[in-house]
């Protein structure tokens, strides 16, 4: 009897180890899963101090993750989902600010720095060359 019992326990153990877990969110395609991951990293949790939707454990972030998952599976485009969020929570939720007149400085700034920097480089090197010519002559 005891042998049978332990045998049953063993079978149960074996069986249990074969139970595969289910993912919390199922996606119809791996593309959708990738889209979900990148969208939740682009959007800021509106309540948190400074976290994206993917990382935040707050209630609102969970709701919004569910909403994004739902919209992706519904066949909404990324742009539609982003617009949906902005309409409700404002531009604040975008970690990558939209390009516009008021964010042009933000987006063009680094390019401008780089151009100015390279101009300075050329200027300094040329001035040096001129001075060196003067030295050798």
């Amino acid at each position: 009897m005891r042998m049978i019992n332990s045998f049953l326990v063993m079978i149960a153990l074996l069986a249990s180890s074969c139970i595969l877990s289910e993912p919390l969110m199922t996606f119809s395609s791996s593309l959708n899963q990738t889209r979900f991951q990148s969208l939740t990293q682009e959007l800021r949790c509106p309540k948190c101090q400074n976290q994206d939707l993917a990382d935040s454990q707050s209630g609102i972030a969970k709701d919004l993750r569910t909403q994004i998952h739902f919209m992706i599976e519904q066949g909404k485009t990324d742009q539609e989902i982003v617009d949906y969020m902005v309409a409700r929570y404002g531009n604040f939720v975008l970690y990558r600010p939209k390009y516009s007149a008021v964010t042009s400085v933000l987006w063009m700034g680094p390019v401008a720095f780089l151009v100015i920097g390279l101009m300075v480089f050329v200027f300094v090197v040329c001035r040096n060359k001129k001075r060196r010519m003067g030295e050798t002559s």
Binding site: D52, N91, P97, W107
Partner: peptide
């Protein structure tokens, strides 16, 4: 007075990495 925006990892990764 233009409101509130966020500048986060997606922005920095885009502009910082190439340079």
């Amino acid at each position: 007075g233009l409101g509130r925006i966020s500048v986060g990892a997606p922005y920095f990764n885009t502009v910082f990495s190439p340079i």
